[in-house]
Design a protein around this nucleic acid. Sequence first.
DNA 1: ATGTCAATTCAAGGATTCTTGAATAGTTGA
DNA 2: TCAACTATTCAAGAATCCTTGAATTGACAT
Lengths: 119, 119
Amino acid sequence: MDRSKALAALSALAHETRLDLIRLLTPQGDEGMAAGLIAETLGIAAPRLSFHLSALEQAGLLRSRKVARNVFYSVDTHGIGSTISFVLNDCCCDHPEVLAACSHRRTPRQGEVAGTEKT
Amino acid sequence: MDRSKALAALSALAHETRLDLIRLLTPQGDEGMAAGLIAETLGIAAPRLSFHLSALEQAGLLRSRKVARNVFYSVDTHGIGSTISFVLNDCCCDHPEVLAACSHRRTPRQGEVAGTEKT
DNA sequence: ATGTCAATTCAAGGATTCTTGAATAGTTGA
DNA sequence: TCAACTATTCAAGAATCCTTGAATTGACAT
């Protein structure tokens, strides 16, 4: 991932509604969710939703596919992952403390309860 | 890290000049670099630099300390790390594919050469 | 063909962000 | 005190982004 693409992806992530979209769509996996249902779930107007979905898709963070009248949107896991990688590798030069601060709660083991520490 | 702080941090990262600052300052460690030297290195005007340094510090991604007439800026590794954690944990719900796409080049083993694959 | 439905596009405005030169504050040394 | 130096603050303008209602496109069913 080059710098301009990473910058576009970070800009796309830097908005409350678009983070809500990622948060909603990630658990849906590759099937994704129809735009109408997304709008209803988040309670936002259709043109506004289209605007943000388009921004995320342009940035490589979402994919879309048409099914009959509906358009299903799903997260592009590779796009998000390589954006994170860009920050860690290219910007932070794999700095050990950044990697540590980033990974200390990333892979909770079975039986562990995540989200109990103060960050 | 709560959502508003994470959003502020992502917004701060989503700018070319500010990514350049993170990239420049990360290798400098806790000592950091004086504002004047940063401005000279990146070739940007002083008020513009102050604007972006302030944005990054407000977002919790940089720290500053005064030494004589100079102000030294250094990266807040915990701030950056918890921002990344927020995206992975809170937004992407620790989605396995996102974690995989993010971590596949994050911790090169001794002797490995990082940065040879296409992302 | 016609009506309905899902989604996007358009246009206008409002709000936010960014850059620049000028001015200001604070510190050091003569 | 005064000049030099470092950095920030201020104000104005430019550029970009976001929201909203209206209009449009495309697909399906009758």
